[in-house]
Design a protein around this nucleic acid. Structure first.
Lengths: 219, 219
DNA sequence: ACAAAAAGTTAGCCTCATCTATATTCCATT
DNA sequence: AATGGAATATAGATGAGGCTAACTTTTTGT
């Protein structure tokens, strides 16, 4: 059974997540996401293509092969199951689990992940609303609209939030902007101005950058 | 504050465990326990002494410094809490947890370890009877007698077994040689011959090498 | 007591993953 | 169409951690 270094796994996950968000992954994006120099990415990409995990032509975009995508999805599954487990079984707050999961995801066996998932009732999403790939690597990851895409007066339900920044998560929690919450856009100031959002009986005024990090389903 | 590589942690733990068992740790023992060449141990020992974790003079024995011992004990705590947690909270068998813990112990934060320990009621020993150091690095690890040290007719209670070999553990479990079990030595064949041990209503005949890996308290 | 064996160290090499500095290539704007 | 700036790639270095082969020191057996 093929086993990969932590670095290799991290690069594959980064490429996976960047291609999902922006359509394609390029060297500098990977470098900045992993906080390494772009020369390091070039070097690693050579190794990854050598192992058949990534396809790439000089100066071109990075694309996961089937194999690379499968490795990435396994890692994403491990990450999200761990996050869900830490919150549900060990009482972690949703802003504390990302960094813990970043380390554990490389050390946890598939068996452990499956046991964790079973212990908390096989959740379909992690604490931030991100869907959890199945043990067989199946994943549907829809591209949601964000709070910033709502029309004035429109109602929606928060389904997912970005999970990397603990401060952001604490702030969102304080506003009750959590997956499952029903919201509506009350008002939108002109010239990319702030949004007034109602959640429950309260309204909050938030800026567009924040709004773009909260994903909703029309409801 | 200080954080050490997995390798450094592994070496420190190996030295700790070897000095506990045999009084002192020497290069070849560490090499064989970690399955590396002895030249690699020499190289690492140079690094460890440089970091003030180990004291050593050429061709002499390896000894942990206070600092090295403390790092080792933290790792031992992480290992044993994880083993206990996997058995108690996730239904692992006692022969499955060692290798899982060997990987997780490097990735788990002190916070996670403390939560795991709390979740299962702050156990004092791991599933194999090994005592768990406190969060502050306190540990009493008595040197027990083994089944091989019993006199004919003597009764004792199993308090701990060696934990590294899954096959050994499965065999011990099948004989009900588990911590807590009351045993007595029925018969001892001459010339280092096999022992007949009663546990509960059954008797089993075991060889000396096995007997030396099962620790007892007089009872 | 001393030679052979065992243990430990050194030397020199390798891979992985990173860096900085420099060189290419691409592309957007004039 | 030319060119300056951004993106990417290469060259060469570094440090961790490992290896084998050769050498040195210690231990042991007769």
């Amino acid at each position: 059974m093929s086993t990969y270094t932590m670095s290799v796994e991290d690069y594959l996950k980064a490429i996976y997540e960047l291609s999902r968000a922006t359509g394609s992954a390029v060297t500098t994006e990977v470098a900045s996401r992993l906080a390494v120099a772009s020369a390091s990415v070039s070097a690693m990409v050579r190794r990854l293509t050598g192992q058949g995990l990534v396809s790439h032509e000089r100066y071109g975009a990075l694309k996961l092969t089937k194999k690379g995508r499968s490795v990435a999805l396994q890692l994403v599954r491990r990450h999200r199951v761990i996050e869900a487990y830490l919150v549900t079984a060990l009482g972690y707050a949703w802003d504390e689990v990302h960094s813990e999961a970043e380390r554990l995801e490389h050390a946890a066996s598939p068996e452990l992940i499956n046991r964790m998932a079973a212990a908390i009732g096989e959740p379909e999403v992690d604490p931030h609303g991100a869907p959890i790939p199945t043990a067989h690597g199946k994943l549907e990851e829809p591209r949601y609209r964000t709070l910033g895409d709502l029309a004035v007066g429109e109602k929606a339900r928060i389904v997912r939030v970005e999970d990397e920044d603990p401060e952001l998560l604490r702030y969102l929690a304080s506003l009750r902007f959590v997956p499952g919450a029903s919201v509506s856009l009350v008002k939108k100031e002109p010239f990319e101005g702030p949004l007034t959002i109602r959640v429950g009986s309260k309204t909050h005024v938030i800026g567009l950058p924040l709004a773009g990090r909260v994903f909703v389903n029309a409801s």
